[in-house]
Amino acid sequence: MPIIVNLDVMLATRKMRSKDLAEKIGITTANLSILKSGKAKAIRFSTLEAICKELDCQPSDILEYSSDKSKDI
């Protein structure tokens, strides 16, 4: 999928554990793990809002678009 989730990078820069973020935004660690691993098919605006609020960042800091052409090179 060309959408990359940079949640692990954001967590590392803020020195926050996945478990803590999951508790604060009210989702399970399993779901957060799916989001981090890029297996998620979609993300709700409410979840994105909660993550941005908790990590004090913009949606563009978490989500990144990468075209498939870069993979071919």
Binding site: I27, N31, L32, I34, A40, K41, A42, I43, R44
Partner: peptide, 8 residues
């Protein structure tokens, strides 16, 4: 169903 389950 899979998409719904994988919507976080």
């Amino acid at each position: 169903k899979e998409e719904n389950e994988l919507t976080i």
